[in-house]
């Protein structure tokens, strides 16, 4: 799987710079709600929440795509599992966020375990396409799920409760819960990618042959990463459903999966901070351009094409080019 190391090799010198960047992002996000209230633009909180939800999803994808060189084109399926876990459980009278998250994690992990075991038999383009196929299966399953609105999706009666408290009913409450989970996801993945496990995963990305020649079988590690990544994305799905108070198969369409890859590549793969910034910037761009013109996709598409053509390595490649992400190790 050395076919993509070219853009994947992340100079580790900028590690400290990366942590600082992440902390700066968290700090900036933390002051969004008071700022939004002060400016009389509470809508900003909703957009920022969406940005963070997708940042969690992008972080989860970066574990397998950036660190494991497994280009999944079906990752949006787990956003769907997370959202539908909320819809199904709350309909059954279980509105507790923690229980819903447990269900989302279990469902996502199980689906990932089965489909990952099959997908990991293939390589390269085939891997991309088989993950796409599994994503489509999940999508069509929920499209035909007429009890939950089928194609149209279904509105939730209310947001989830936390230990019986209506903590998420206000936008600010949901915002800080999401921020907390974003920080947790980042911290967890940051440690994970530097652990023994992460070392085997990134080593396999660099050269599977080398890893075998020192006594590793890559598959169990890749599959474990695939499952962990799915579980985290499932949590993002739970948040997405709560943010929109609505779930629909559209969350898991291949467009969404493609968009998640776009977020990663835009921000720069394999560095976690790149995934996070990529997601934040993508959602902000979409929301921003959409206010500007109904044909915002034209501008957004052009930006993607130009970034791909002019700046390999995405935004962090661009920053590096202008020496803004200096290594201070």
């Amino acid at each position: 799987m050395t076919y993509m190391t070219q853009t994947l090799t992340e100079p580790r010198a900028g590690l400290a710079a990366r942590l600082k960047l992440a902390l700066a992002i968290f700090a900036l996000l933390a002051v969004v709600p008071p700022l939004a209230h002060a400016m009389g633009e509470p809508f900003m909180i909703i957009i920022a929440t969406r940005m963070m939800v997708f940042a969690i999803a992008a972080l989860s994808l970066d574990l397998i795509l950036g660190h494991g060189a497994m280009v999944s084109f079906g990752h949006a399926a787990y956003l769907g599992f997370g959202s539908y876990a909320v819809a199904i459980l709350s309909r059954a009278g279980i509105s507790d966020l923690v229980l819903q998250m447990v269900a989302a994690v279990l469902a996502s992990a199980l689906f990932a375990l089965v489909t990952g075991a099959i997908s990991l038999r293939t390589r390269g383009v085939y891997f991309i396409m088989i993950t796409l196929a599994f994503g489509q299966m999940a999508y069509f399953f929920f499209v035909s799920f007429s009890a939950l609105g089928g194609d149209d999706g279904v509105a939730l009666a209310a947001r989830s409760t936390v230990l019986g408290l209506p903590l998420l009913q206000g936008e600010t409450g949901l915002f800080y819960v999401t921020l907390g989970l974003l920080i947790a996801a980042f911290a967890g993945l940051y440690l994970l990618t530097r652990s023994r496990f992460g070392r085997v995963l990134t080593g396999t990305r660099e050269s599977a042959l080398r890893m075998q020649a020192i006594g590793f079988r890559p598959l169990p590690y890749q599959l474990t990463a695939y499952v962990i990544s799915a579980a985290i994305c499932g949590v993002a799905g739970v948040l997405l459903a709560n943010q929109a108070v609505y779930v629909s198969p559209a969350y898991m369409s291949w467009h969404r999966s493609g968009e998640m890859i776009v977020m990663l590549v835009l921000g720069g793969v394999g560095s976690l901070t790149g995934a996070m910034t990529g997601a934040l910037v993508t959602v902000a761009l979409e929301e921003g351009l959409a206010r500007f013109s109904e044909h915002w996709r034209l501008g957004f598409g052009l930006i993607l094409v130009l970034v791909a053509l002019l700046s390999p390595g995405g935004l962090s490649g661009l920053l590096r080019k202008f020496n803004l992400l200096r290594d201070d190790k």
Partner: peptide, 8 residues
């Protein structure tokens, strides 16, 4: 190598 948190 299934250790996930301590930096290697």
């Amino acid at each position: 190598s299934f250790r996930f948190f301590r930096p290697a």
